[in-house]
């Protein structure tokens, strides 16, 4: 049984007739070919699939597409403008907050919303706020530095 869904993704209308068991992440990756959002686990822990739904960071592998009916969805592909990186993206590059790049989109998307809720985060706030994002490459050292720097840059 197909269900018609429609939503706004990165500012553009998107819709399809889909099997209700389609996870949002698969809708984004397979239907819209927005492959920047990744799948790293099947139990909702790794956070590689983090996107914004109605301004909130959520795990796109832990929400059905049909649950996002009518929502505003933003993915990693939607945060830079005309090739100009978002301050958080720039901070990750400047502080070497990524290595293999697989967890990076989810990390950046969570970090942006973390900072929107905590504009002046402490190191502890950042570390606790990244609980739902696994990185196996960086030991988080440079990610935490990047998020702190990104927070400062987002204020400007």
């Amino acid at each position: 049984m197909g269900i018609a869904v429609s939503m706004t993704v990165n500012g553009k209308a998107a819709g399809a007739d889909i099997d209700p068991r389609t996870l949002l992440v698969h809708f984004l990756r397979d239907q819209l070919r927005l492959t920047g959002t990744h799948v790293g686990c099947d139990t909702g822990q790794c956070g590689a699939c983090t996107v914004h739904v109605n301004g909130r960071a959520v795990k796109a592998c832990n929400i059905l597409t049909v649950q996002a009916q009518g929502a505003e969805v933003v993915t990693i592909e939607g945060i830079s403008r005309d090739g100009e990186l978002h301050p958080m993206q720039s901070a990750f590059r400047d502080h070497h907050g990524l290595q293999c790049g697989f967890c990076t989109p989810g990390m950046v998307m969570n970090a942006i919303e973390l900072v929107q809720n905590h504009p002046d985060p402490s190191e502890d706030t950042v570390r606790a706020g990244l609980e739902g994002n696994f990185c196996r490459c960086t030991g988080y050292h440079n990610i935490v530095k990047a998020v702190l720097a990104g927070a400062a840059a987002m204020k400007r």
């Binding site: 920047g36 799948v39 993915t75 830079s80 990524l98 989109p105």
Partner: peptide
């Protein structure tokens, strides 16, 4: 030197195996 590969990973432009269709 800042990494040449970062731009694509930061913008969702990486091409991982599962991205190949």
């Amino acid at each position: 030197i800042k990494r040449k590969e970062d731009y694509r990973f930061l913008t969702g432009g990486g091409q991982f195996t599962d991205d190949v269709t």
